[in-house]
Design a protein around this nucleic acid. Structure first.
Lengths: 168, 168
DNA sequence: CAAAACTGGTATCATTTGACACCAATTTTG
DNA sequence: CAAAATTGGTGTCAAATGATACCAGTTTTG
């Protein structure tokens, strides 16, 4: 087993997930306690702010959230009077989402706070480092997406390799 | 609102979480279909492989998993005959976890596959880039952890700023 | 050394999350 | 242009996750 050792701690996907979780937790807590909004809601809100009149499934595409989560977040935001859902001109099934005045106002409160949180965590890095870091993240996205489409070669659909469940 | 604009897409915590999610999904799917093991189980397994005789809450500390998840994973792994739970010599409440032969064997099957997945995703980067990337992740961990302990200054426990829930 | 405070681990319950089925509107096809 | 297939969005149900309560064993304290 000596040779097959893999220190989880330096296994990239693990580290990535670990750090992301840590940061997420921190941010989520801040949004929750300070603005009463959860992360999915924040994401939806932010994308609407960015592209007025965006539809729900456009948000799905950009965020990788599934449509159910987006739907729930949109409904919640609407209930709170933060977003408005206008009928879509060309497609009767769809909604065009837009911020209401109070949605805008909340967004404007959150943004500086978000920037502050971000810069607290990333304060120690130079602009070059941040840029480089971001660039790598984007490349990883591209690679992972490409792989995903390609499937996992060498492993046909149903080649389970583990002993039949001793469970139950 | 012009000025308070924040492109989510270049907001670091978002990007981090986005990429980590993407990679996680990919990895999780591979473990699941090829070895019938989920991510929490894999993490527990890997830590046991690394430190034979580790206890559950040591795993909690190292992985940030909560003790319930670790417990569940440990029980599942035990049921499958992959890990053994010996009584702890000095503490009757605790278990010392160790891999059984088939646990070792499974681990040894997973490791090369994990390395392969990792290298597929990170193939395009030089060693320096990877090192740098890892280093940044670790620094972020440190910063986030420090902040977490410090709390969020400037915001006393209960200063909600959002309008009372229009929900329901 | 008994009582109180604490800790490792598990069971239980509530909440979150996502998979699936479904509806209405739209697009495609023959 | 009707029938079939597709798509945006939501309701519903099932699995995953986390908070809380709890139990047994351990440490602390008076």
């Amino acid at each position: 087993m000596a040779n097959s050792h893999l220190p989880l701690d330096s296994f990239m996907p693990y580290r990535l997930s670990f750090t992301a979780g840590l940061v997420s937790e921190h941010i989520a807590h801040a949004y929750e306690t300070q603005f009463g909004i959860d992360v999915p809601q924040w994401r939806v809100l932010a994308w609407i702010a960015e592209r007025d009149g965006i539809t729900q499934q456009e948000i799905c595409q950009r965020t990788r959230m599934d449509k159910v989560s987006v739907s729930r977040a949109a409904i919640a935001l609407n209930r709170r009077g933060l977003v408005e859902r206008r009928p879509h001109a060309r497609d009767g099934r769809s909604h065009m989402l837009a911020l209401t005045p109070s949605g805008i106002s909340l967004y404007e409160q959150i943004v500086p706070r978000a920037r502050e949180l971000e810069s607290r965590i990333f304060a120690q890095f130079s602009d070059e480092e941040r840029e480089g870091f971001m660039a790598i993240l984007r490349k990883i996205d591209a690679a992972a997406t490409a792989l995903h489409k390609a499937g996992t070669p060498g492993h046909p659909p149903d080649d389970r390799q583990w002993p039949e469940a001793l469970d139950e």
